[in-house]
Design a protein around this nucleic acid. Structure first.
Lengths: 130, 130
DNA sequence: CCTTGCCTTGACGCTGGCGACAACGTTTAG
DNA sequence: CTAAACGTTGTCGCCAGCGTCAAGGCAAGG
């Protein structure tokens, strides 16, 4: 399988695949003419990468999962390093959820006050508050 | 008040202040020697900018609030344009909260499965799950 | 032979909010 | 006179994951 086909089957771009390779995440073979040649295992690897990136992981976070797959595991999640990353990411997400919740709260009150103020300074124009 | 003092009182840097000016958010006067001179009103403006940026707004989002302050309002929130931005941002945050919640859920199940798998393949080493 | 369509390796652009220089003028204190 | 501590404009760097040319090679069909 050449790079174009892999890109299509993995739902990404050739540019991204070369980028992953440049960062040591994918190791294709080379045919006589210098073309990158991928097997099915690499397809699984790339799909794992995509899935994790889509969830908000960085390339460095993805490495343990790829290594885990390459080590022969059916899932990239089961190795200790992957679990560590999963734990860390979960904590990060929880943290971010907290802060985002606080922001939401602030926006909400700010908005209520603004609208209250509008009603107060201009009570006759209370037509559409959506 | 010169730029250094403003930076300190507003809790930011001179670089940032010049940046805001370059993007049309702050308009200091100039003294004879070319130095930027700010009044108290500009301090309030800069504080508004900082507060909004800290909450995750972009400079473009901040513009209506600055204009609102300049129009003589006590708060930058009360003008229609500001309210629009507040609404939009609130919606964005809600959206992001949803997706982040989904991600959290996925990470959680992924983690449970990984740990379950570890217990299964290596049940004797069940010592510290933290 | 020529075009089409795949592949190759560079290398720059992008987004945003600045940080961190560089090279220089101004003001004040000693 | 000079050094310190301000100010000025200008430009490059940063982070990350690519997009987007550029300039060329290789294979196959008409």
């Amino acid at each position: 399988m050449l790079i174009g086909e892999l890109a299509e089957r993995a739902g990404t771009s050739t540019r991204a695949l070369r980028y992953y390779e440049a960062h040591g995440l994918v190791r294709p073979q080379r045919s006589a003419n210098g073309y990158r040649v991928y097997d099915e295992a690499e397809l699984r690897v790339v799909r794992e990468i995509r899935a994790l990136l889509d969830v908000g992981f960085g390339l460095d976070d993805v490495r343990p999962f790829v290594a885990c797959l390459r080590a022969g595991n059916a899932s990239g999640d089961v190795c200790p390093d992957s679990v560590l990353v999963l734990r860390r990411k979960l904590a990060e997400v929880d943290d971010y959820l907290d802060r985002l919740g606080a922001v939401r709260q602030q926006l909400h009150t700010q908005l209520s006050h603004a609208i209250a103020h509008r009603e107060e300074s201009c009570p006759r124009k209370r037509q559409s508050d959506h």
